[in-house]
Design a protein around this nucleic acid. Structure first.
Lengths: 332, 332
DNA sequence: CTGAAAGCGCTTACAG
DNA sequence: CTGAAAGCGCTTACAG
């Protein structure tokens, strides 16, 4: 039988209420009784039962995390583990726990969200991806259940989110290519169901426009998926039209495919990736990329959510994490 | 106010006890009342409060996971995310949840284990690394708290664990090198505080001995850490003695360092890594490596633990996951 | 097959 | 500053 608050109360000669107040650090308890209670707790090695507290408090101090399945990318791209680390670090500071589920499909993800909400297991939820018509976001909004999204959602009305400034990152990137003398700059982007795909494309276009360079639709490809193969094929399409001075891709794996094509055809074209995954450094040539600071994203997502849960008045409901351009051989 | 079992009972004109029995699928409830209760639950959109169930059942159907910090390796090596996926997949099948904490240091890890155990948050714990004198293992054993270790622990008495056969994997690897004509085979291993380091070294030695090849201590290096730099330095030391025909390393990052040294000195030596991280494929030359099937390790760890929790009589308390040798340019 | 009652281990409004 | 009592939302041995 486990030691309960009653055992402590008995030993300390006080009521269970008093013990409870000592645990929860209620201010109106005399120092004398506090000491009594503490020493009784020590003697019995008493540890509060978290589940009972949760029930009485109607709160679990736990965050729910949904990890989407992204196949290949899940392993090659340390985004999720880094984000989780950031989340975990902030949560630990505030004494929050984290519960996660790995969703094999968007339907899976939705059903886990349902479960998290219905079962009262968690106080708030962190979504690690935002889709175009995101059912999880829709459901959570309807239920008015606290949540935060890593990645700016489509309809940001009253939704908390954390993201990079994808528009700006790409804008700056293209600018720097222009400054290096590139004129024909191609773009290999990902599926437009992700809002960051759109943002990055916009940044690219705007940078060209402001320098009065024409935006050539033939040099813009929307890849089906973020794979090396897609990057390779995209580059083949582009080169069938025209060999550009540079290619901006919105994912490192796409960039790898582009590099592969260029190596095989012995073409000299500057290439950039996105996400700065460890593999980038090992490409031939090493791939210039944009570090999106995944750990910071996670950290700030947890921060935003926990502050909201604790009732801290948020002046803002979102947070922008800066990116860092890591230049390597592929653009030097 | 949330809908409770009482509301359902009232609407269905039965007692709360009956509703509870329907939820927990007790066999001795008439089909008639079952229907009544189910339709009442539907009408009210009743969802059981998991926390209350946990308290009454003294069980949370939750597993606790400790993710050790391994710096660099945490991001370059997808081991943890793969293992987590495997754990999550099995847990979901059995309706278990997973709670995790990322430990910044071994002390951190221990304090999280304490917390998991004391707070009654979890029914069992999965440790993702085993150290030589593992305080977590020691504590959990003393408390007789259910747990499983990924990686064979030192003292396996009564401990559940899941691992590859590191001895055999290295043994086979070295054998295949010998068959390719290699005689002088060097070994770059990791810190001996990890048991797999010892196992892999043993496998190497045994393979040589059985072929009557001498085990040359000068060709065996124990690196301080699993980094590229360590691999590079180790190779320098070895080559100062003698340039071998092949080098077996116990971690891909070490292998990368060895390759780097060989490239710089234009030496033709066969090299193997371990873990088969995505980067291996992209080395120059692509690195031969051993796939340790991290997802399977996680899956079987969860399986072992959950079976034990559910009181299924385990005939074995451990499970060996097969490895796969992935041959690439570096040994061809 | 079903219900009334006690219990899981906490918290907290109320009273003093 | 402290205690008795009711409550959080379930489960289950006991009785019928």
């Amino acid at each position: 039988m486990a030691i309960t608050i009653k055992d402590v109360a008995k030993l300390a000669n006080v009521s269970p209420s008093t013990v409870s107040r000592v645990i929860s650090q209620s201010p109106r308890i005399s120092d004398a009784t506090k000491k009594l209670v503490y020493s009784a707790m020590d003697e019995l090695k008493y540890k509060p039962n978290a589940i009972a507290r949760n029930l009485a408090n109607a709160s679990t101090k736990t965050l729910g995390l949904i990890i989407p399945n992204q196949d290949e990318n899940l392993f090659k791209n340390p985004f999720f583990i880094q984000a989780m680390r950031g989340i975990s670090i902030y949560a630990q500071k505030k004494n929050y726990k984290i519960m996660f589920n790995y969703g094999a499909s968007p339907e899976d993800e939705l059903s886990f969200v349902h479960e998290f909400v219905n079962s009262k297991w968690v106080d708030g939820i962190i979504l690690l991806t935002a889709y175009e018509n995101d059912l999880c976001i829709e459901y959570l909004s309807e239920e008015a259940f606290p949540f935060v999204v890593v990645g700016r959602p489509y309809n940001i009305h009253d939704i908390m989110w954390v993201d990079n400034d994808n528009f700006q990152a790409t804008y700056n990137l293209v600018n720097s290519l222009i400054q290096k003398g590139c004129q024909d700059i191609a773009f290999v982007g990902g599926p437009q169901k992700y809002i960051f795909s759109k943002d990055r494309l916009e940044g690219y276009k705007r940078a060209l426009e402001l320098r009065n360079l024409t935006v050539n639709k033939d040099l813009i490809i929307e890849a089906k998926d973020f794979t090396e193969e897609d990057g390779y094929q995209s580059m083949a399409k582009i080169c069938a039209i025209k060999v550009p001075h540079a290619v901006v891709t919105t994912d490192d794996l796409l960039g790898f495919g582009v590099l592969k094509y260029l190596r095989e055809h012995e073409l000299n074209v500057k290439v950039t990736g996105f996400n700065n995954i460890p593999l980038s450094e090992y490409q031939n040539p090493a791939l210039t990329s944009v570090d999106i600071k995944a750990e910071d994203l996670g950290y700030n997502a947890a921060k935003l959510l926990i502050k909201a849960l604790e009732g801290v008045e948020n002046t803002v409901n979102h947070y922008i994490v800066g990116t860092e351009l890591v230049e390597r051989e592929s653009t030097l």
